[in-house]
Amino acid sequence: MSEGPADSLWLHHYRMCSLTEVVELSGLTESELREWVEAGILDPADPQVEPWSFRADCVVTLRTACRLRQDFDLDTHSVALMVTLLDRVHALEAEVRELRAQLPQTHR
């Protein structure tokens, strides 16, 4: 079965998502989402401005957090800690990749 091309959307930090959109995409309730914001799992672009909006890449974080919560049976604070550490691992991996790219390769 084949279908036409879908709407493609980059989940990068230049694009914003509304609170409603994030609730719908994550499958969390709004109060769960507020609890997660309080625990530091994700941050609204500007916490003072209601309704909140989020950078689109937070959808990636939320999907990871949902997986971790379910698969490791974690409470909110353990999820927050794991998400923070995973973010650091990913940032460091990206940095290593970028530095490696700048190293000359030996030819011949």
Binding site: D7, S8, W10, H12, A94
Partner: peptide, 11 residues
Amino acid sequence: TEGQRLRLSGK
């Protein structure tokens, strides 16, 4: 770029 995520709505 490396590690970028793309969402295909409704797929």
